[in-house]
Amino acid sequence: MFEARLTQGALLKRLLDSVKELVTDANFDCSETGISLQAMDNSHVALVSLSLRAEGFNPYRCDRGFSLGVNLNSLNKIMKCAGNEDVITLKADDSSADSLCLLFENSSNERVSEYELKLMDIDQEHLSIPETDYDATVMMPSAEFQRICRDLMVVSESVTIDVSKDEIKFTAEGELGTGNVKLKPTSTIDKPEESITIELGQTVSLQFSLKYLSNFTRGTPLSDQVMLCLSDNMPLLVEYKMDIGYIRYYLAPKVGD
């Protein structure tokens, strides 16, 4: 028996929003410790990894590990039937899970709706993501990162990210001209959500597709801060941390032939 009840149901809507543009079908891997998802986009240059800890749910019950194969488009349609303030409970039979039950309860518990989503068999390759000591780790307000991606898309479909110890610089060059945004580290003790920090082992300069980066910024509502981790010849890591877990996006850099 699998059961996971999330008092903050809106979080599940936001999580789905942050994944569904990148991936259409995905396995939710359920275990004693929580729920996780790992999936690549169609072109296999981007990967999303989601982890939700069991402690974030109340209650959480999972007797044995199993996977829920979900079409995210269909799940999204059903999730639209949940109110923003609703408590959401996910239920499935772990021995023969051919459907996922979703229960939406309003705060006063007067309205309860129940939906069953048909599950599918998804054969997905699972990659083991290595622990990496990144050359540069940057924390910045997530809304700022979203704005930079949106703004620079006006100029080009690619962005070069340069990180040095006193600056992170985003540069775009296109047919109409060029644009860049530079941010300096700031520490605002009273407003940690607005701070920018740079941890640097060595300077990096890498180029990425803005289409993907702006897709990743769908995670913005999940966290005030975003973490960017860069290393030469490694996929960029973009992480949004939540109380209940994290969503991580990886993107392969554009490299010369």
């Binding site: 240059v45 990967l47 990659l127 083991s128 996929p235 392969a252 490299v255 010369g256 032939d257």
Partner: peptide, 12 residues
């Protein structure tokens, strides 16, 4: 000309 490797080429 720039190209992108797949994620699997980095993480196997």
């Amino acid at each position: 000309k720039l190209k992108q490797k797949t994620i699997a080429e980095y993480f196997s």
